[in-house]
Design a binder for these strands. Structure first.
Length: 309
DNA sequence: AACAGCCTCAACCGCAACGAT
DNA sequence: TATCGTTGCGGTTGAGGCTGT
């Protein structure tokens, strides 16, 4: 009954990918597209199994990947989505363009879990941890603040929730997928955000700015602000992308092709991560106003609610 | 400087889901 | 319907980096 392994493991290489392997795989995918992964290693001249190739591509080589740590905004999105979806990392990742499930899973396990525990929240249930032991004074204050924030958040959410009920057809895609449990005490900031945008699902919106995408560029261009965290590990450090040949892969000539009319000039303004939330609004509106006229959606760091400046 | 312990994250493994036949 | 092949997902592992002593 035992199934065949996904690939013949004899003679196949395992472990960290080399720059040479990356180059081969990337060249192949960009020239031929993603087809049958099982065939990829053979056709690309790699001694890897298809699964390994797929993983390497999706988690590391894809040109649309964002690099660097998750922003505050993204982190909160993750927490919020996790509250609804649980450990469905791929679903969570699908709401964070440019991030992979693996990346989010790792970040959750290494950073967010600890953070939540420190705040007195159970990362599994997203409810306050049972107070069996008194946290140290500093943490105690944090817990207090957190609880206060949560109640503030809930009030604001309730108001919005009421409004939400009047809207007939707004049904969050997340909510559908999540088959939300009976307990809906935690009204999500994500829902709120959707509500504020009249149910517009940000799934449909490219949230990664062109400049953040890993695109073929001349070696002279050095404006990359985020460095690859993995570039120094596992021997896969390489700058080969800089001189990579994208022979058959055509990138749009300008941003307009990717992002719609009149976006390019506005996107130029949307550079810093500090402007991330405004970028979200801009992306959602598809018509971002100039930086000094932009209604700014602000995520209140304490109450986890959104307001508009 | 050397060592130990901790942390991070890329990569692996096994299973489930899905489509084709 | 059953079986097979392929892809996708989530949990886990371990190499390498970091930090404290």
């Amino acid at each position: 009954m035992g199934r065949q392994p996904c690939c013949d493991k004899v003679g196949l290489k395992k472990g960290p990918w080399t720059a040479e392997e990356d180059k081969k795989l990337m060249n192949f995918i960009l020239n031929n597209g993603q087809c049958c992964w099982r065939a990829v290693p053979k056709l690309a001249g790699l001694l890897r199994c298809g699964k390994s190739c797929r993983l390497r591509w999706t988690n590391y080589l894809r040109p649309d990947l964002k690099r660097g740590l998750l922003s505050e905004y993204e982190e909160k999105m993750v927490i919020d989505l996790h509250a609804q979806l649980g450990n469905r990392w791929s679903k969570i990742a699908s709401h964070l363009p440019g991030r992979t499930d693996n990346e989010i899973k790792n970040h959750w396990n290494t950073h967010i879990k600890k953070k939540l525990r420190k705040m007195g929240i159970d990362p599994l249930t997203h409810k306050p941890l049972p107070t069996t032991e008194t946290p140290p004074p500093q943490e105690q204050q944090e817990v207090q603040e957190q609880q206060q924030a949560q109640s503030c958040s809930t009030n604001a959410m309730a108001e919005l929730e009421h409004k939400k009920e009047t809207e007939t057809s707004i049904q969050s895609s997340i909510t559908e997928e999540a088959k939300v449990e009976e307990d809906k005490s935690m009204i999500s900031t994500f829902d709120t955000m959707e509500l504020m945008n009249n149910g517009f699902c940000i799934d449909e919106v490219p949230l990664i700015e062109p400049h953040e995408m890993l695109v073929p560029c001349a070696p002279s261009s050095s404006s990359t602000t985020t460095s690859s965290p993995s570039s120094s590990s596992h021997g896969s450090n390489n700058n080969f992308l800089e001189d990579f040949q994208f022979s058959d892969f055509e990138w749009p000539v300008n941003d307009t092709d990717l992002w719609g009319d009149d976006l390019s000039s506005c996107w130029d303004l949307l550079i810093n991560d500090a402007d991330y939330d405004r970028k979200q609004v801009a992306a959602i509106n598809h018509n971002p106003p100039p930086i000094n006229q932009c209604p700014r959606m602000v995520l209140d760091q304490d109450s986890w609610t959104y307001g508009i400046l």
